[in-house]
Computed example of a mutant assay.
Amino acid sequence: MPLHPRTAPAPALRSVLAALGSPTAVREARTPALRAATGPVRPELPLPVHVLDRISPLGGPARTRLTGWRFLLHAGAQAVAAADTRLTPDGWTFSHFFEGPYATATERALRQAEALPAPYQPRLLSVPELYMLTLWLHGDLAADPGEGTPRPTDLLVPLAPAPPGIAAHRPHRVADLLPVLTHRITPAPPPLLGSPA
């Protein structure tokens, strides 16, 4: 098995289990699939969620920060929704349930990553400026899942829907994809108004 997921913090998992056990939390969630699920709903495949805070146009390392843990919620054999947790001053707490394309795209990308020849630690990497979410396949299996930056040899798998011009569900080396993202995020210089007389 090439994927080596790390265990989520126990308080994060407990907060999701408590929310799933609360009829009020499930009923008020805007996730019809979760409300309609028959049988038990299980949180599985916990992934640390990192946000890309900075891409250096000069080729320096990208800066990321851990913002939470995401659990895919399974009813039967497939994911019907997801649950996010976040870190507060009092520790890990449940944030919200959601469904939509990123939940199913995450599950699809994880299945695809299982077929890769090299082992990876799976994470999620969000690029807010591009409304983009990727499966980040980190090559350091022993790394703390809450820390680190994308290494040039790590893989990023954009999840569908991906921004125009970036193929979803196709693995890209960080060294190849980050320059593309840098170009899209970096503002263009102001146009020259004319030449001096």
Results as ranks from 00 to 15, higher is better:
G76E: 13
P89T: 10
I55R: 00
R14K: 13
L133N: 02
T85C: 11
A105V: 02
G146K: 09
A113F: 06
A75V: 04
L87R: 14
A167F: 00
Q121G: 04
A143M: 07
D176I: 05
P57F: 02
G139Q: 14
S195L: 15
R173G: 04
E129M: 07
R173E: 07
R70L: 12
H96Q: 13
L156K: 01
V16F: 12
G21F: 08
P89W: 10
P145A: 09
L155D: 00
G60R: 04
D84T: 09
R63K: 15
R42L: 15
F71I: 09
G76Y: 11
R170Q: 11
F94A: 02
A36V: 03
L137P: 02
D154N: 06
L155W: 04
R170C: 03
G194K: 05
P189T: 12
T106R: 01
R86H: 14
R35L: 01
L66H: 11
R108G: 01
A62V: 13
L159C: 04
M1V: 13
G91N: 03
P89H: 10
P179E: 11
L58G: 09
A79L: 12
L178V: 11
L155E: 02
T67S: 15
V49G: 02
G100A: 06
L193N: 07
P152M: 03
H172D: 00
L13D: 07
A168L: 03
A25E: 13
A109E: 04
A197S: 14
P161Y: 00
Q78W: 14
L72F: 01
V80Y: 07
A81W: 06
E114D: 15
A167T: 12
A188C: 02
P145T: 08
F71W: 14
P196D: 10
P191N: 01
P46V: 04
L124K: 02
P119F: 04
P89M: 09
T88F: 07
A62H: 11
F71T: 07
E44M: 12
A12E: 08
T134K: 01
P164S: 08
L87D: 08
P158S: 07
D144I: 12
P117R: 15
A113G: 08
V16H: 10
M1K: 13
P145Y: 06
T106H: 03
T7Y: 05
A118F: 12
